[in-house]
């Protein structure tokens, strides 16, 4: 496993699931309470899998697993997401 990238890299995979640009969503970490834009999170990529960690405490925020026919989104460490409304 090499070094991580930023949450910016989630824009494509999350565009399959949400109509809003989720990298501009602010995300509250359930572990440490830090609130940051998802673009700032640490993303560890493996084939068909994105593991997303809090940039402050390193706790798991969410995981995206892309199967052949289904995408699984695990939000195990997200306390809240705040998403800009369209046109604002």
């Amino acid at each position: 496993m090499t070094s991580h990238v930023d949450g910016n890299a989630l824009a494509g995979p999350l565009s399959e699931l949400f109509s809003a640009d989720m990298t501009c969503a602010s995300c509250r970490c359930a572990s440490c309470g830090d609130v940051a834009d998802l673009a700032e999170a640490m993303v560890y990529q493996k084939p068909n899998t994105y593991i997303v960690r809090c940039h402050r405490c390193g706790a798991m925020l969410l995981t995206i697993i892309q199967g052949s026919h289904r995408t699984r989104l695990e939000l195990s460490g997200v306390a809240a997401l705040s998403v800009p409304r369209p046109g604002t």
Binding site: D6, A11, D21, C24
Partner: peptide
Amino acid sequence: VRGPLGGWF
């Protein structure tokens, strides 16, 4: 390709 993507950076 798909995009454009990302509105943060």
